[in-house]
Amino acid sequence: MSRVKEAFQDKKALIPFITGGYPSLEVTKKLLSVMQEAGADLIEIGIPFSDPAAEGVEIQEANERALAAGCTTDKLFDMVKESRKEVKVPVIYRTYFNPIYTYGKEKFMKRCVECGIDGVIVPDLPYEEKDEILPMCRQYGVDLISIVVPFSKERIFRTAEEAEGYIYCVSRPDLERKGEKIQTALAETAALVREAADIPCVADYDSLEPEQGRTLVKIFDGVAVHSAVMELISRYGEACVPHVSEYVRKIKEAVK
């Protein structure tokens, strides 16, 4: 069993996300430590990219600022490697495909192993394109984490059957707009995943309040906190560390 899957054993996992190098690599390094200490079971780090079109404008701004502050893929790898002296929880890279492709797929995987990256989430690599890196991920033992969305039964099955690490269930804003009960849709999605494979299923959790987390972990094996932590970092900048720590502790309490 991969280290990533192990992190879900006998508990609901909390997975905070931060953009690497935002507001600085030093702060990112501190955040890794304090988030682990506050109860994060896995941590996702975004490799800053010039055009993160799959994410909102807030995250794009964080990406731009990280790049402007001089963060590069190499510097981020170095920082993660350094932090691995203290950080023992699995660390996942969330990155667009171009930074991997341009870096060199094999070189990238080698660096993941060397620096202690356990898995990668590549939002612009859907099922149709995942063969770009899946064989190499398997060769180097880096989990390629997949994403599924509600109301795509066939795709959910196909994806889940070949999935590694955990599966990410993301909502569909257009459904929310139409007034669909998103909670029900996500529950159905998780049920389909479980039907297809024995793999932890994680939901996006974007609230600053713990209540939503309690509801979500009734359905899911864990929650990934994507924009909420980023919001705190944006609000407090260099001084964000204690605020993020407090928040992660509060959510962990709610979802464990």
């Binding site: 799959a54 939002p123 612009d124 859907p126 149709e128 795509s152």
Partner: peptide
Amino acid sequence: SEKNRKKKGRYGEYGGQYIPETLMCA
């Protein structure tokens, strides 16, 4: 077949569908 569908959007190595899962349905 999945393979044919994939091939269809290719021009040599170029092309493809590198988009988020959310957009795949659309």
